[in-house]
């Protein structure tokens, strides 16, 4: 009797499920950044909004990368249903606090995938997901840098807000 399951895919069901869950998480992260960028733009923070528009694009790229991988290895990528995301923020700092929390949640989720891959000996997926481990290290670093700027620039002055907007836009090499 042929092993039809293995002929179809190298992906074990539990890995397929967590990768699809990760797709949903990345797509949600993209939407969160989009809402944050929109809030910043509406409130006059033009340059940092451009930075977060870029982050939204990047998260969507991450989502598609996993989505395509699932199909490439014979699994079934499921288009995620994304719920409502926060549209309003109290101030500039709360936007970037939320961004850091979101990145930490994504990093934890990626770590769980690596652990699961090792548990079921799915070394191909582990190798694939290691790219995200490195990427998340950078994403967290960028999100922390944004919050660090609030420590060195006085957000309560008009000049401070202007300067913060400008400096946040430079994070990650972006001008």
């Amino acid at each position: 009797m042929k092993d039809l399951v293995r002929l179809r895919t190298s992906l074990k069901e539990e890995i397929e499920i967590i990768l699809n869950a990760q797709c949903k998480m990345e797509a949600e992260a993209s939407n969160k950044y989009l809402a944050m960028a929109s809030w910043l733009e509406r409130n006059g923070y033009k340059q940092s909004s451009d930075y977060l528009y870029g982050q939204a694009e990047e998260e969507r790229t991450h989502f598609l990368k996993i989505f395509k991988y699932i199909n490439d290895v014979g699994g079934t990528a499921i288009t995620p249903v994304i719920g409502e995301v926060t549209q309003e923020y109290s101030d500039l700092k709360s936007v970037f606090e939320t961004a850091l929390q979101s990145e930490i949640a994504v990093s934890l989720s990626i770590n769980k995938i690596v652990a699961k891959c090792r548990e079921v000996s799915d070394f191909a997926t582990e190798e694939f997901i290691m790219w995200f481990v490195k990427e998340q290290r950078e994403e967290e670093e960028n999100a922390r840098r944004a919050l660090e700027l609030f420590e060195v620039i006085d957000v309560n002055s008009s000049a401070g807000k202007f300067l913060l907007d400008k400096e946040i836009a430079k994070i990650g090499g972006k001008e």
Binding site: M1, D3, L4, V5, R6, E13
Partner: peptide
């Protein structure tokens, strides 16, 4: 289906008929 797959993986395809 999954049991068959595990048997293939464990015993090797030559053993399973």
């Amino acid at each position: 289906l999954e049991l068959n797959s595990v048997l293939h993986e464990t015993l090797g395809t030559l053993v399973i008929r």
